[in-house]
């Protein structure tokens, strides 16, 4: 699909574009005309009070709910009419706020299911297993390799979910409260991994209520309130923005 932007390919041209995205649940406008762009390699923090629409925005990107209005494009391709698995195969990996792992499958099976589903032909079963083992080791859950995931604790499930998302080799990573229930020490491990991914040029959107952490990590923050985009700027700008302060205190 052609848009004006296709003629102006520069280093800073956006790889991810959300244009006037709206989504209503019945009469409740959970997303109200949200627009923003991201350039490749950006780490964007997404904040907002409870119920402001952060998860809904990620759900819209992942085609879990169809937009009622607006457009979403990734790498110059419209993705808002794709189905869920097509969005994932287009290069968008999603981590969920509540860790929904496959409980009766082992950790390795959890990872391989994702790895196989999006694999490129060159990658063999052995390659995928090696990559899975590396991820488990780096996230300190390698001892659960052959344990059924349902027997892990909430925090460990979060780590497994993180590993499973990375198995997708996403080019855009969506993280919804990735540290919920995770031990502070392990949060450090995850943060380290996120920093490395960012340094390697991965484009990331991260939702978190942990404002100090997210403000320290990202160069740019956007804030939602009642489904509307109320701020978009550097952490310092957003922190000082009276509209944001108002939304948090009022909410």
């Amino acid at each position: 699909m052609w848009s004006e932007g296709d003629y102006r390919v520069t280093a800073a041209s956006p790889i991810f574009e959300v244009e006037d995205a709206s989504l209503a649940f019945g009469g409740n406008r959970a997303l109200d005309s949200v627009s923003f762009n991201m350039v490749a390699g950006e780490l964007l923090g997404l904040i907002g009070p409870n119920g402001s629409g952060k998860t809904t925005l990620l759900n819209a990107v992942g085609s879990i709910y169809p937009l009622s209005d607006g457009k979403i494009s990734f790498e110059r391709q419209r993705i808002d009419s794709l189905s869920m698995h097509e969005v994932t195969r287009a290069g968008i990996g999603r981590m969920f706020q509540a860790p929904r792992i496959f409980p009766h499958m082992t950790c390795m099976e959890n990872l391989l299911a994702a790895g196989f589903a999006v694999r490129e032909d060159a990658e063999s079963r052995e390659d995928l297993i090696h990559r899975g083992e590396e991820l488990l080791t780096s996230l300190t859950i390698d001892r659960f390799r052959d344990t059924v995931a349902g027997s892990m604790s909430g925090g460990q499930r979060m780590l497994l979910q993180f590993a499973r998302t990375l198995m997708l080799r996403p080019r855009l990573l969506l993280l919804d409260e990735p540290f919920g229930g995770v031990h502070p020490k392990l949060i450090e491990v995850m943060l380290e991994r996120i920093r490395t991914l960012h340094e390697d040029g991965l484009t990331i959107i991260m939702v978190s209520h942990d404002l100090p952490t997210i403000m320290g990590l990202s160069q740019r923050i956007i804030a939602l309130a009642n489904g509307k985009l109320i701020a978009d700027g550097t952490p310092a700008e957003v922190r000082e923005d009276p509209v944001v302060i108002d939304a948090y205190l009022g909410g």
Partner: peptide, 24 residues
């Protein structure tokens, strides 16, 4: 085989299976 992984993933959580790129 990989088919078994997909089927089990679908049995466990169909939405998440699809979100992991599986054409459920």
């Amino acid at each position: 085989s990989e088919a078994g992984l997909y089927l089990k993933a679908i049995r466990e959580d169909e939405d998440i299976a699809q979100a992991m790129g599986i054409d459920t």
